[in-house]
Design a binder for these strands. Structure first.
Lengths: 340, 340
DNA sequence: GTGTAGTGGACGAACGTTCGCTCTGTCTAG
DNA sequence: CTAGACAGAGCGAACGTTCGTCCACTACAC
């Protein structure tokens, strides 16, 4: 009884024909609307399952003007933080009955406009942006015109977008203060690219902690890198060749911190005895590095979920009167700072 | 001149009205079909950009019966391997002009049926399955009825699905042979859950290598775990308390291997001097663990891209006469086996 | 018997496209 | 001068839904 190949999907009309009512009535039953007698209701329902009816959301969306789908624009799905953020978003979206369409941008940061346009073509109800903007205000200004609800993980310069994130200054502050509290005086730091807001904010927190402890804020203490493991590795060598006297390094994310640990290992420096290390983010790996990494936990999963919640509220309420969310961060002390 | 809030998106009819032709002709121009005079063509095109026209793919899909979208079903987007697989798939799909809709399943493996149904409701053109089936043949048998093209990362027991993957036996073989070649005689192994095909195949490769080297295949050498860092950590303690004499451990994935390294560190065993470690997969981290992890590289990114290529071929050709792909694996020797 | 309320269901219209057919004119070959 | 070819554009229909309006019938109270 196998059907042949091109068997096109059964539509509500097929179900209707099979149960002797109009297709509009069938639609009502399938959606639990209107009033239909129990008898025909049963008949329609059983016809639907017999035929293996699967509603066509595209057609539905066309008339309801809502796709029950949200778009996620991200730069790098492999990044552990972004990955957690996206998982949080996906699960919350699913919980609320929305599908997720992903649109990635190029590693070099371009293609954001293309990605957003593709999502709009598919008429997503809203967009979550997890794309650190390389201050390309113009690009986003343009897309704002489409007046589609957007929630962003990062501040967008001229955007006025709703943002869900964490307090990066506080993150840098907690990490560095932890080190000064432990009595360190010569604390270096490895940052992300200086163009980025996150790097700037975490650096500000670092400096604030140094200030609180009465320590000088020396430019030779700061080494710029690229958020990657290999970048952290190389930055460590540069930093230590310039300042071999450091007793601690604050690294602006855990990924680079892994490279830092690796570099210190190859340099024969014990962690934390010869040099303490503190990271940021608390990626899953952080608890299992050798030695385990002290870090500041940033709730990316929760941020993703919150971004969706906010987005759906925006969609429901017509974008009115909502404020972004700033999620709290928390120090997680482990071995690499000698405080675990 | 800002438009007010509910400004509904401009349709092809709006563009048509604005340039004095029928909307069907407008459609032709916008799609580069039919023959239209250069003059009206220009007029329509400029009207389209003036009004900020964005085509509605939903409506298009409704009539063309093709959404130019594929679905990806995955269990855990945070897993580094799956993550690379998905990125590979996403990028290849994008290159070929297809959108990607993601549908996750519960961490416990349930919800696969729901995910697939959701994708079919959205009328994706095909589905990539990155969901290790816990031998739930029935579930997949059922969805096969919908006769939608599917490519899977894993073999599905009764499925007959097209598969894109790697040779797991070979993976286990290369890793273990590397250790026997280095002269190890007492080699333990930490596996994934024994119910899984991947774990079984890699175990087979491990045993084959032991056989080649004339070593006994002892059940006390095998410890089951869960693919996670923490699982690897604990499995190591169990394994070594039973067999303190081991000089090497083959771990069935790099994630667990990180836990293994961590456990050996806390036990005061130097790697590789006291105990060598070899993993599988070659996740990005592997090059930066302390010490750097010897592993067998599995091309997940390439697998994701290949899965999409295969899927789109299936879609184009009506699923006829295609074979799955088995991608080659490769040993990457680093410090943790003392061969780096 | 009439009027009113309610229930069960049919039906037309719309959503934004694509596709194929038809119609009008102009140009060219015979 | 006529037949055919062809370019340019219009138009109806269809895709699979949802929504609101309208119709027919039953039941009940007066």
């Amino acid at each position: 009884m196998e059907r042949s190949r091109p068997a096109k999907p059964v539509s509500v009309k097929d179900v209707a024909a099979n149960s002797g009512v109009s297709f509009q009535t069938t639609s009502k039953v399938l959606n639990g609307k209107g009033s239909v007698s129990e008898q025909t209701r049963k008949r329609i329902l059983s016809a639907a399952t017999d035929l293996g009816y699967v509603p066509n959301i595209l057609a539905r969306s066309l008339v309801t003007r809502s796709t029950q789908a949200v778009g996620v624009v991200a730069s790098n799905f492999s990044d552990p933080n972004l990955s957690r953020f996206i998982v949080g978003a996906e699960q919350e979206a699913r919980r609320q009955g929305h599908a997720v369409i992903i649109a990635s941008i190029e590693p070099d940061g371009t293609g954001g406009h293309r990605a957003v346009r593709a999502l709009i073509e598919r008429r997503v109800d809203g967009i979550v942006l997890a794309d650190p903007p390389a201050n390309e205000d113009a690009r986003y200004a343009r897309l704002m015109k489409h007046q589609i609800p957007i929630v962003s993980l990062h501040d967008v310069p001229g955007g006025g977008l709703l943002t869900v994130g964490s307090d990066h200054v506080q993150t840098g502050l907690l990490a560095t203060r932890h080190l000064t509290d432990l009595g360190h005086h010569r604390i270096g730091t490895i940052t992300g690219p200086h163009g980025g807001r996150v790097a700037q904010s975490r650096l500000r927190g670092y400096r604030q902690a140094l200030g609180e402890a009465g320590l000088a804020d020396d430019l030779t203490l700061v080494e710029e890198s690229d958020w990657q493991i290999s970048g952290g590795f190389e930055a460590t060598r540069r930093l230590l060749s310039r300042r071999p006297d450091l007793t601690a390094i604050f690294t602006q994310n855990d990924t680079m911190a892994i490279g830092v640990l690796s570099a210190l290992h190859t340099l024969g420096k014990d962690v934390p005895e010869a040099c303490a290390v503190v990271g940021c983010d608390d990626i899953e790996m952080a608890a299992y590095t050798v030695p385990a990494l002290t870090t500041v936990r940033v709730p990316f999963y929760e941020a993703g979920a919150e971004a969706i919640r906010l987005l759906l509220k925006m969609i429901a309420s017509g974008s009115s009167g909502l404020r972004g969310t700033l999620l709290p961060v928390q120090l997680i002390a482990r071995e690499s700072s000698g405080a675990g």
